[in-house]
């Protein structure tokens, strides 16, 4: 290799990757290619930002917009549920504390099929939207996507979900349910969430747990909460967002368990009162 080509090659590589990395991309895939009428079909939305860029969580932090998915002209008998978000990372955008995803990330959408929905092949259209930022720039993006699957008669068995897709489901939250007790209080600066798990819950190490709020501007972004095991309860202390609504019931997600657990506690009287 000549000196010239040694000098030029790295430049070409950097230049090429910069061009390839300009755009965030998205794909849609059903968890099963067939779904019975009367069931719920889960759909994976995978969003891949360019290297060095990130997209945003439901609570994006001091700035940002969450990834979203909008279905177009859904046929009779099919309704869309909300988009489920996996564990975000605490990333900074410039000097601002934000929460999002630097890597290819699988979000999970739901389509509810009524008992009366027409059977046969279906092609649905949707638009995925996001804001992608690095430390110097932000680019809002969107991509039109299609989803193909077949509605089979009610009562027929859907194909088995692949192990790869099953793993995706283990990463998005479910409602914790009535076996858990949750209590949310606050003082001037912090929220305190006390969770009482069911007796048969397998306790993971406290340092493997994390808490995020799906309600924007509830927790101060960029702060790792303090999570302690006390008397068979999880005591979680996290600083408040300066914009927190002290009256609205938030959706808080405990990450660590698979799947993560969502709590929607009412806010009780202030701690120590």
């Amino acid at each position: 290799m000549s000196i010239f080509s040694r000098m030029v090659l790295p430049f070409l590589v950097v230049s090429g990757s910069a061009v390839a990395n300009e755009e965030t991309t998205a794909t849609l895939a059903p968890f099963t290619t067939k779904a019975p009428a009367g069931s719920t079909l889960k759909v994976a939305l995978t969003v891949t930002p360019p290297e060095g860029w990130h997209t945003y969580y439901l609570d994006p932090g001091e700035m940002g917009l969450p990834v979203s998915l909008e279905w177009k002209d859904l046929p009779d008998g099919i309704t869309a549920g909300s988009l489920a978000f996996p564990l975000p990372h605490r990333v900074s955008t410039g000097d601002l504390a934000t929460q999002g995803y630097e890597d290819p990330t699988h979000f999970v959408a739901e389509l509810k099929l009524s008992e009366e929905v027409a059977t046969g092949p279906v092609t649905l259209a949707a638009t995925a939207s996001w804001l992608a930022c690095d430390n110097d720039a932000c680019v809002p993006g969107s991509q039109d996507l299609t989803l193909d699957f077949e509605v089979i008669p009610a009562g027929e068995t859907a194909p088995k979900v692949s192990s790869e897709m099953s793993q995706i489901l283990l990463n998005v939250p479910i409602d914790a349910g009535s076996k858990w007790q949750s209590e949310l209080t606050s003082n001037e600066s912090d929220w305190q969430l006390i969770l009482t798990p069911p007796a048969d819950w397998t306790w993971p190490p406290a340092n493997s747990l994390d808490l995020f709020s799906e309600t924007p501007d509830f927790l101060a972004p960029g702060h790792q909460p303090i999570i302690e095991n006390k008397d068979k309860k999880l005591v979680i202390t996290a600083p408040k967002s300066e914009y927190a609504d002290e009256k609205a019931s938030p959706a808080l997600v405990l990450f660590g368990p698979q799947p993560p657990l969502r709590f929607t506690p009412e806010i009780s009287a202030k701690s120590g009162e």
Partner: peptide
């Protein structure tokens, strides 16, 4: 007082 939105100021 409200939460401003937009791109981060580039300090």
């Amino acid at each position: 007082k409200t939460k401003p939105y937009g791109c981060s100021v580039k300090y």
